[in-house]
């Protein structure tokens, strides 16, 4: 098996809950990411889906080491990021970049496009001062922005254009892996499609690996090779995009897929929808056993006590005790 470009081994990110002002003491832990193992190959797009609060954004930040890992390892080209010194981390992060959800918040309103895009180039010594303008112009062309807008500020652009600037910034250092955290959620449908096409093209042309985080399954299915479904800090199903979304196995994935409204009145009115009761539980006091059991229509007594592990099943991995027992 070729060495994956990015590997996560049992990664955990926990946040302590403290009370008290002078004498702080810990009263609990939020287990935002609780034991995630993943491999991302070169040139692969991995989709990560889940509802709000399931830990997908925390996982993204942990991969980038914007949040420290509580346990486990993040390996980039075989090097552990958590064990790197600060200096090594700066070097290694060149290969690992992020695009955030809200392009209104992730760009500095007081920096022109040129300033935003030239900063990483100069900091990392990618090019000399003379070549910077040319480099920035190339970057802008690559993401479909005219280079004459170089001296404009973020507020002069629309949402879609700002997301293009954010993508150009992530591309500046020619990374090997880009983590995109809900890059199209804040955009209108017609603009969404433009940004998705751009990301797909960049992956094809530059041999990038992409971790694409979203809550919209149809978007994820379109762009991803493989899909991981998260629930309460854990991956519950992992496999090829067509397997997971067209023939889901885990009860949670099934409910998630059946909840997507389809833009086709006849199908939409005739199909049976699995409506899950209740809300996702709090990661402070997760339910025992399988964390999905209180909402699961197929739960049995064993689900309450036994913690399921990801196991190979029908060409993908599923963490459900009863995988295969229902069709």
């Amino acid at each position: 098996m070729p060495e994956p470009i990015l590997e996560l081994i049992d990664v955990k990110t926990h946040f302590p809950i403290n009370t008290g002002f002078l004498f702080k003491r810990q009263v609990g832990t939020v287990k935002a990411v609780d034991g995630v193992s993943l491999r991302v190959e070169r040139g692969e797009v991995l989709g990560l889906v889940g509802e709000s609060g399931c830990g997908k954004s925390t996982l993204a930040r942990t991969i980038l080491q914007l949040l420290p890992t509580t346990a486990g390892k993040v390996l980039l080209s075989g090097h552990s990021l958590g064990d790197s010194t600060a200096r090594e981390l700066i070097e290694r992060r060149r290969d690992l970049q992020m695009v955030f959800q809200d392009p209104y918040a992730s760009l500095n309103p007081r920096m022109t496009v040129f300033a935003t895009l030239s900063e990483p180039l100069l900091t990392h010594g990618i090019c000399s001062g003379k070549e910077v303008t040319q480099h920035v112009a190339d970057l802008m062309e690559r993401v479909g922005l005219a280079s004459r807008f170089m001296q404009k500020y973020p507020h002069e652009f629309s949402g879609g254009q700002r997301q293009r600037i954010a993508i150009a910034r992530a591309l500046a250092l020619q990374p090997k892996v880009i983590v995109a955290d809900e890059p199209v959620s804040a955009l209108d449908v017609s603009i969404q499609a433009q940004i998705l096409n751009l990301l797909a093209k960049l992956v094809r042309d530059m041999g990038l690996s992409l971790i694409f985080i979203a809550h919209d399954l149809s978007v994820v299915k379109h762009i991803s090779d493989r899909v991981a479904v998260m629930y309460l800090g854990k991956i519950v199903e992992l496999g090829s995009a067509s397997d997971v979304i067209d023939r889901p196995q885990h009860p949670y994935t099934r409910a998630l897929v059946s909840a997507i409204p389809t833009p086709n009145p006849d199908i939409e009115r005739s199909r049976k929808r699995i409506v899950l009761p209740g809300d996702p539980p709090s990661p402070i006091n997760p339910p025992s056993g399988c964390t999905f059991h209180p909402r699961c229509p197929h739960a049995i007594a064993a689900c309450r006590s036994e913690v399921p592990r990801l196991k190979p099943f029908d060409g993908r991995e599923v963490s459900c005790l009863r995988a295969g027992e229902f069709s």
Binding site: V189, A193, N197, K201, D216, S218, K221, H222, S242, I260
Partner: peptide, 12 residues
């Protein structure tokens, strides 16, 4: 432009 109605792999 709805992704779910389009063929996977092609441009949206």
């Amino acid at each position: 432009s709805i992704p779910s109605l389009q063929q996977k792999g092609g441009d949206l």
